[in-house]
Design a protein around this nucleic acid. Structure first.
Lengths: 125, 125
DNA sequence: CTCCCTCATCGACAAACTTCAATGTGTCGG
DNA sequence: CCGACACATTGAAGTTTGTCGATGAGGGAG
């Protein structure tokens, strides 16, 4: 056991699932595929900023379930372009939706998105 | 840095500017405090990388519930320093633990960490 | 004690991220 | 048609992140 892995320099590009090479201790293999990991990481990265966490929770906690940008700028204390930028990231991640009514853009939480993400999180362990 | 609100070492009494100057639709306020958002974002940021998602799931799915670095390098196809770097981030986020036995470092999932994170995620909505 | 193995840390570099001011786009009121 | 409003987009500056090669820190084998 604990065999040497020849030269450790492995330039392999890796887009597929490498099965257990020759585990030094226990046979392990990636439990989550590369593309699934990328999809998950993209959503988590959207939540990996304090401002976006606050924006998401603020929108979700709004009385109507939605809020426009002018309401969200002050609570986070950032400029309007910055808030719009963060909101776009949350929309791209599938956590918020954007609806334009008149001159205002209303952002609302995607129903069940957080619950599904929470389920996926539990399945990781 | 502009909007970055203080360090984590200070008590930080002010958590937000709670009220919009003149809400165009509804008066909203941040549902999550700044320091709670920062704590959450730090964990999510740790999960915001495909490599780290795979590492975490691989460790959690290991037969013994733990894996050493030499086992984790090949599945993700990255160099050993890079894998160690990612593992340290996961440890700092409170998702993995590191135990050195002999020459090897064994990483294991923190019991219940993902479940608690999933619960917090649900509470955001 | 002296190698060798496993892993962590350091230094460096390109890519991505966060933020803002300035500007563009579309809508409503007059 | 024109100006004002709400928001998105662009461009730029500063910081952070991901990655590797090289090196350092300890422990085990001989």
């Amino acid at each position: 056991m604990h065999g040497n892995i020849g030269g450790m320099t492995t330039p392999l590009p890796l887009t597929s699932e490498p099965l257990a090479p020759e585990g030094c201790c226990t046979p392990v293999r990636a439990a989550v595929g590369a593309e699934e990991a990328q999809r998950l990481a993209r959503v988590f990265k959207a939540l990996g900023d304090p401002t976006r966490v606050r924006l998401l929770s603020t929108v979700a906690a709004a009385s109507d379930g939605e809020a426009c940008v002018c309401d969200l700028t002050a609570p986070v204390g950032l400029s309007q372009p910055t808030v719009s930028h963060h909101l776009k990231i949350l929309v791209d991640a599938g956590l918020l939706t954007r609806t334009q009514r008149g001159r205002w853009s209303y952002y609302a939480a995607v129903p069940g998105a957080l619950d599904r993400l929470a389920d996926t999180l539990r399945d990781l362990g």
